[in-house]
């Protein structure tokens, strides 16, 4: 297929995906390069761009839309985590779920979203084409372009199912006491949040393993404070104080 004409079908999305979707159609990202054209009627469409977790209200309308499309190729492009599997709304009361799927359970891949409708339609004997899943909450415009390009065969697939056997008993040992590391991590998390806390703590452990004594550690910390921005510098000072308190007090009893 050279060019897909698409119809946008919103099944109860929060409009995050819509914003990204229309971004993908602007001149900067320009999905029309691939022949993607937004059409006003499902009767003209090769594909539906489905967004949203498929609410009970939109279920019947969405069914009508897909039935109104020409029987071939009837491609479904599920945009966003909600359309792929229900997303954050997966067990909400207004979400349509097939009775046998339920809302709990531990099957994987996780069920929900536009899949429920597609399976209903297939059970009714309606022809439905392939479903392209583009997860993301919301997906970036690049992600949407990538999904469409993948559908058109322009790019290679980059994901595959991953299974790992974690058999070894080696869990890794940081340069400082594990108990102390977790304590410092919690302390930092309350000050600057986990994202920066993890980075500062990693840098601090690097300094600890480099420094031979407390004076050298203090010099390294001062050097770090002069290089980084004030927030990270202040946190570094804080955990240095805590670290030394722990060291001198001989553990938690201090």
């Amino acid at each position: 297929m050279r060019s897909v004409w698409v119809f946008h079908l919103d099944t109860g999305a929060c409009n995050g995906c819509e914003i990204e979707l229309f971004d993908a159609l602007t001149p900067y990202y320009d999905a029309e390069r691939f022949g993607v054209k937004l059409v006003g009627s499902p009767r003209h469409a090769h594909a539906v761009l489905a967004t949203g977790p498929l609410t009970r209200q939109s279920y019947h309308a969405a069914k009508e839309v897909i039935k109104a499309m020409p029987p071939k190729p009837r491609i479904i492009i599920a945009i966003g985590t909600c359309a792929c599997s229900g997303g954050i709304f997966y067990n909400g009361y207004p979400i349509h779920r097939r009775p046998e799927d339920g809302r709990k359970g531990s099957e994987y891949p996780r069920r929900g979203g536009i899949d429920e409708l597609v399976r209903d339609l297939r059970d009714e004997g309606e022809p439905v084409g392939p479903v392209m899943y583009i997860p993301g909450c919301p997906p970036r415009p690049e992600e949407i372009l990538y999904g469409i390009a993948l559908l058109l065969g322009l790019v290679e697939k980059r994901v595959r199912p991953e299974e790992h056997e974690a058999a070894g008993l080696e869990v890794g040992r940081p340069p400082i006491d594990e108990r102390l590391r977790l304590t410092l991590r919690e302390r930092l998390r309350h000050v600057i949040g986990h994202f920066d806390a993890d980075r500062v703590l990693e840098d601090f452990m690097g300094l600890v393993s480099r420094a031979k004594d407390e004076e050298e550690l203090h010099r390294l910390v001062e050097d770090y404070r002069s290089r980084k921005d004030e927030r990270l510098g202040a946190c570094m000072e804080l955990i240095e104080t805590e670290y030394l308190r722990w060291k001198r007090g001989g553990g938690e009893r201090s």
Binding site: S85, P109, D115, P130, Y133, E142, E143, L150, K157, V159
Partner: peptide, 8 residues
Amino acid sequence: FEVASLDR
């Protein structure tokens, strides 16, 4: 972020 796929 390039995780689109035809197979869940």
